[in-house]
């Protein structure tokens, strides 16, 4: 900056001091900052570790579970009587069920289904929700009214009943569970994304982009999406827990996964008869549901705090 009046000596010192002030602080990105904040949140880290552990166990199950714990679905009629409903022991840490299958083995294979339903159904909901939310928020006017009223209608029905009704039409089965939970979950995601976009759109930098002649596509991709995606990441994470719960509820009611495929919901349903005598049959899958859903909720909570731009200076 040039100056019209002569400044006495010392100006250089000013600039040097400024340069020093800046070189001292390392450059940080917003996502990097968020990660640092997330790491400081012990509950969120615990949730994340639990989820990662579950995923590793579920994915690698085929490599070691059948050898050590046996097959999750097949039953051996010759030994069934002697193996039925054994209490937890070293050989069967979670005990065995009515048909003599290892409960731990079935919980592990059940995790595969639960995690898959949680992630895939949420992916479907998020995809539909993102498109709908973006259409409503960006176009506004009549689009906004139609899409959001449509979403309101969806939200006006009890969610689980709606899913059951849909499964009654398309029939039970694992793929149909994905589809039903996924397709019916979009309205809340669309709402969250729409309001995120609307608040980001208010920012001057969106106007600045328009003022420099940026196309709509560029504005959405470069400016609106990166700044509104944080809320979706948070919401989707929490939604996975919700989807897992819904799947368990459906299977419990016999509308979801078809036996003999292991599902936590089916296991609880099977075990409820023996709650007084052999409680592990019900408690073990129950704990699996509880910890998994809790882990996703804690991680989502932590992400929300970490991704909040307003907290960047904290």
């Amino acid at each position: 900056m040039s100056d019209n009046t002569t400044q006495p000596a010392g100006e250089q010192a000013v600039e040097q001091a400024q340069a020093k002030e800046f070189s001292a602080a390392p450059s940080r990105t917003l996502w990097g900052d968020a990660f640092q904040r997330l790491r400081r949140n012990k509950l969120a880290v615990a949730g994340a570790i639990w989820i990662i552990l579950m995923v590793i166990i579920a994915i690698s199950a085929d490599l070691w579970v059948p050898q050590t714990l046996g097959n999750p679905t097949q039953t051996d009629s010759t030994t069934m009587a002697s193996m039925s409903r054994l209490p937890p022991s070293l050989e069967h840490p979670f005990g065995t069920d009515t048909l003599g299958r290892d409960v731990l083995c079935r919980v592990i294979y059940g995790a595969r289904i639960s995690l898959a339903v949680g992630v895939l159904a949420t992916a479907i909901s998020t995809l539909i929700g993102l498109v709908m939310g973006a259409l409503a928020a960006y176009n506004g006017g009549i689009w906004d009214t139609i899409i959001m009223r449509f979403a309101d209608i969806f939200l006006a029905f009890p969610y689980t009943l709606f899913v059951i009704a849909m499964l009654a039409v398309i029939g039970p089965g694992i793929q149909n569970v994905f589809i039903a939970i996924g397709v019916l979950g979009w309205p809340s995601i669309a709402r969250v994304f729409r309001s995120a976009i609307l608040s980001v759109k208010e920012n001057d930098y969106v106007d600045a982009a328009r003022a420099m002649g940026a196309s709509d596509a560029r504005i959405i991709v470069r400016h609106i999406f990166p700044n509104s995606v944080a809320s979706i990441v948070v919401y989707a994470t929490m939604n996975i827990g919700g989807a897992i719960l819904t799947e368990s509820a459906l299977s419990f009611l016999g509308m979801g996964v078809v036996p003999p495929d292991p599902s936590w919901g089916i296991m609880i349903q099977d075990g409820q008869t023996y709650l007084a005598t052999q409680p592990w049959l019900m408690i073990m899958p129950g704990i699996a549901i509880l910890t998994t859903v809790l882990a996703f909720t804690l991680l989502g909570d932590g992400l929300r705090d970490a991704l909040d731009v307003k907290m960047k200076d904290a």
Binding site: L30, N203, Y205, D207, H223, P226
Partner: peptide, 24 residues
């Protein structure tokens, strides 16, 4: 034409916080 116009006409905003995209 509007895009071409915006090469010649620019805008400076009031709020130095809201006018810069925080993710860029």
């Amino acid at each position: 034409e509007l895009k071409a116009l915006r090469r010649d006409m620019q805008f400076i905003f009031q709020d130095p916080y809201a006018s810069l995209n925080p993710r860029m």
